[in-house]
Design a protein around this nucleic acid. Sequence first.
RNA 1: CGGGAAGUGGCGCAGUUUGGCAGCGCGCUGCGUUCGGGACGCAGAGGCCGGGGGUUCAAAUCCCCCCUUCCCGACCA
Length: 478
Amino acid sequence: MAKDQLPKQAENFPAWYLEVVKRAGMAEHGPARGSQIIKPYGFALWEAVQRALDDRFKATGHENVYFPLLFPEKLLAQEADHVEGFAPQVAVVTRGGGEELEEPLVIRPTSEVIMWSTYKNWIQSYRDLPLLLNQWCNVVRWEMRTRLFLRTSEFLWQEGHTAHSTEGEAVQEALQMLEVYREVAEDELAIPVLTGRKSASERFPGALETYPIEALMRDGKALQAGTSHFLGQNFAKAYDVQFLSTHGELEYAWATSWGVSARVVGGIIMTHGDDKGLRLPPRVAPVQIVIVPIYSSDEGKGGVLELAARVNEALIGRSVRVKVDDRDQYRPGFKFAEWELKGVPLRVEIGPRDVAAGQVTVADRINGGKKAYSAVSFIDEAPALLKELQRALFADAKAFRDANLREAASFAELRDGLREHGGFWTAPWCGDFQCEQKVSAETKATIRVLPLVREDPGAPCAVCGKPGVERATWAQSY
RNA sequence: CGGGAAGUGGCGCAGUUUGGCAGCGCGCUGCGUUCGGGACGCAGAGGCCGGGGGUUCAAAUCCCCCCUUCCCGACCA
């Protein structure tokens, strides 16, 4: 009988989540308020996400850079909406070298300010544009309430900051990166997402449009897994970034910024996890196949380890991330449970019976179940099997998301649905902040997305009954 | 930042009410038996009881301040 079981996912989702994060060896709390230490297994997953994103950034012409962690506080004050939005969450360094600093330094909560105040020096002509830069870094935001991966006071992310000569090009850039994020979420992380625009009240401070990807967690709450912003000329004007156009006129540059953080690691856990722990998408799983050798006597041991080593090498030859768990101190049942907790997509069991039959026993973490393969055919089929599991995991998550993406015809239905069922609820909206606020006040939900292209819903606002201007999608969220 | 709960070997906890030798389970180390779904025996190691101050002959235990974590709100990737 299994000892030391996880909390049931359905009974206490937050406790289940924290247990998985800790027991799978992904992260633990750090010593400072809201900080976290990311452990090797969690970091390996983040690295896989980084690779998937970075490959696409390069493919779309972006270059990586690094800007300072600290910059003078007064720089922050130049863009009104931006400073107002971030001031409460900014950490400030006031001492250095054993003395009070004359000029306090802020720890970046995001880098629009330091980058755009520098872009001023880099951009003179339309020939300097577009400027397509990204950086992988950490940022600090003094959040009131924190949770491992999902909201920590310091977090890892990438932030792209681009400058363009025309409004149209900047909007296209923001939408292009939204599409990159959608593709990484769905094709790599197997997380189906909604894309769209944010309402004015949910927009990034200083942005004209914010385009998010929104995912649905297994407890019915939404998670913003990435955002792309069209910033207009706000930052160019605040930091005086002007260029000479083809017509010889001085113009302000157009900006975008976009980011994905290590929060998505939490998103993977909460999208795919079950009562046994994680289920990882093969494309980003640090270990795709684990081989567990089983032997009951020293005589059987040699043959088992030999077959395990052969399968291991053959899989490495097929570019599979494979690991042989030959730890002597644990028995097979313990290893099975542990790798299930860690979410490894396929587990290969090789024991004396398998050696005798020239076969391997393969357990499937995504769909469940075990199946015997001849060693040779498993080696041949493994890459295709992993592809199939990736597809199955996405299909699973999508079925759940689609089943929890509902339409509300009335305010009562919207309110009760958000309160009682959770998930996404779509309803016609008049566009007024008052109506948005009323729903939020009664349900704790917020508008997660509006359609990318505004379209008449052909029905009155579910809240006030005035003519609707578009359909809003609501959910409670992390 | 408001309301609630909690911090005791790596992890999970008891002990605090009523002050008096710091304990239990898991894990860890060694040896042996085991090994196809979370093994067992024997012998060990490991703790300024979150931090600082106070009361007392004596503090994990009582008082004050601070820090951190969890849950519920307000804030957010």
